[in-house]
Design a protein around this nucleic acid. Structure first.
Lengths: 159, 159
DNA sequence: ATGTCATAGACAACAAGGTTGTCGAAATAG
DNA sequence: CTATTTCGACAACCTTGTTGTCTATGACAT
């Protein structure tokens, strides 16, 4: 059955959402109730080298002010720490704390489990092909979480 | 190459985003600069029978107040009209205007064109299989656009 | 050395979208 | 006729983002 282009878009969104919702719920179940996908992505970016607010903003494609707000939350909750940069007094160096890494680790394993479930549902080869094709179509896009309203927000639904 | 679960999620999100961004940009190019995906979805829901604010809220899984705000915008821009319901004086019946339908029509064709492009890139059978598998995995989820921060917002990036 | 420009981070003001709570009017159940 | 529910509106507030402005610091050219 030939679906419409709009359906395809919804399908993609739905796929992401079910993964993200499930991960968020599971993370909450494991005790990290205040962690949302944005936080996870931000910590990943920090780990990957975005060790100051301006740089984090660039990596996430948001303003540095927005990045600073996210950092403030992360810091408040003990997931990242900041200290001054000895080489550049303007900068505050960011570091993911042990607690932060713990969340990152759990998040990863949750997503991997979710992927395994999908694999069992449609088959290893099928999922691999789906990923390959999607990767071809999407290319390497910057993270671009953007205004993560529903990504960041508490996702209530049963979906 | 076995990707991680998180990558899969990002791929899905990326797929949706590239479609949505392209559609939004093309719609703007065609002169509908103030239409965002949420508006499109809302109009679709209205056409599909959600002819009052409360019902629209239910269909979109948002509060009726949020739905009312969306309606206000849509009305302001002339995409929907409201009149009183002769059968129930509490209700304001919603109707998509001719202009609204025009946008809907254009949006559909844009998404279809985008899908065609994808089909040419990876092959008809491949795209169909991708859709089928995704549909299996996702199931029938309610629209649930949720807090459409970046869906609703003006998507600036080149992505 | 010094003047100029770019960058980091902080603060303020504001926009968009959503939420809950409240309320009056109208429909409906008993 | 009364009690409950539903609709739409309003207000207050949250979250995440944005732009603009400001100071301190660094980089660089003169």
């Amino acid at each position: 059955m030939p679906r419409s282009g709009a359906d395809l878009a919804l399908l993609l969104l739905g796929g992401f959402r079910s993964l993200a919702d499930a991960a968020h719920a599971e993370l909450a179940r494991r005790g990290y109730e205040d962690v949302r996908p944005v936080h996870d992505f931000a910590m990943r970016a920090i780990t990957a080298g975005a060790d100051n607010a301006s740089e984090l903003g660039r990596r996430l494609s948001v303003s540095k002010q927005a990045a600073a707000k996210t950092i403030a939350v992360l810091q408040e909750r003990g997931y990242v720490a900041r200290d001054t940069d000895p080489l550049d007094a303007r900068r505050k160096r960011l570091q993911v704390t042990a607690l932060g890494f713990e969340v990152l680790r759990q998040g990863e394993s949750i997503f991997d489990e979710l992927r395994d479930q999908w694999e069992r549902q449609i088959g290893t080869a099928e999922l691999a092909s789906l990923e390959t094709h999607l990767a071809t179509l999407v290319g390497a896009l910057p993270v671009r979480l953007d205004a993560p309203g529903w990504i960041a927000h508490d996702l209530g639904g049963p979906a």
